[in-house]
Amino acid sequence: MDLTINRGEFVSFIGPSGCGKTTFLRAIAALETPTGGSLTVNGMTPDQARRARAYGYVFQAPGLYPWRTIAGNIALPLEIMGFSKADRRERVERVLGLVELDGFGGKYPWQLSGGMQQRASIARALAFDADILLMDEPFGALDEIVRDRLNEALLDLWAKTGKTIGFVTHSIPEAVYLSTRIVVMSPRPGRITDVIESTLPRERPLDIRDTPEFIAIAHRVREGLRAGHADEA
């Protein structure tokens, strides 16, 4: 597979379980070592990029510490990276605003709904101003209504911050709705079957999903997924 992701893009990786989309994301994050090939992140090796705090990573579960408040959780990477106390406070306030959790900083994770917890974990990934946001099925554990709402909020956030986002998902509508580019992958061996440039405008209200253009892209993703399975069946 050969792929270049440009600055400011929103790239989704979609494919069945076992196609390596999560592994690929983890390789970008230097949480996994590739067995071969070359991979550069902002012109560095993934490991250097990790040390340079090039990315924030969001997992499927929020992974908030129950013994820390929301503000304390968001401040955690900042403490580890050695930001000053005043700087930490200012950053926590700012990212809480970005994910629309103003006023929830003093609450403990169990006092928040699942969707709010996941937003807090996104805030935590944003707090140290990495250029890249890597998200591994961040909304996979949430119900569809919350997921729609968060998808909309994520697009809004992306427009405001101009981050490069790598997004792993199982959901075709989610991938089409969010992405500027969709990478369709197939399993055994993991490879890319199709890369789709989205023709949708950057401004995307939720009802864009009923337009013929959206349906056409979703159809192409589905075709790509089917092609990946063809040699198995």
């Binding site: 983890r26 924030g56 997992f59 510490y65 580890i80």
Partner: peptide, 24 residues
């Protein structure tokens, strides 16, 4: 594994992982 991966993604030291994650 996920919580340890998070720490790793922030390049946390072993001491930081111990005091902030393992001990609590």
């Amino acid at each position: 594994a996920m919580q340890l991966d998070l720490m790793r993604s922030w390049s946390a030291s072993r001491a930081q992982i111990f005091w902030r994650l393992r001990l609590p």
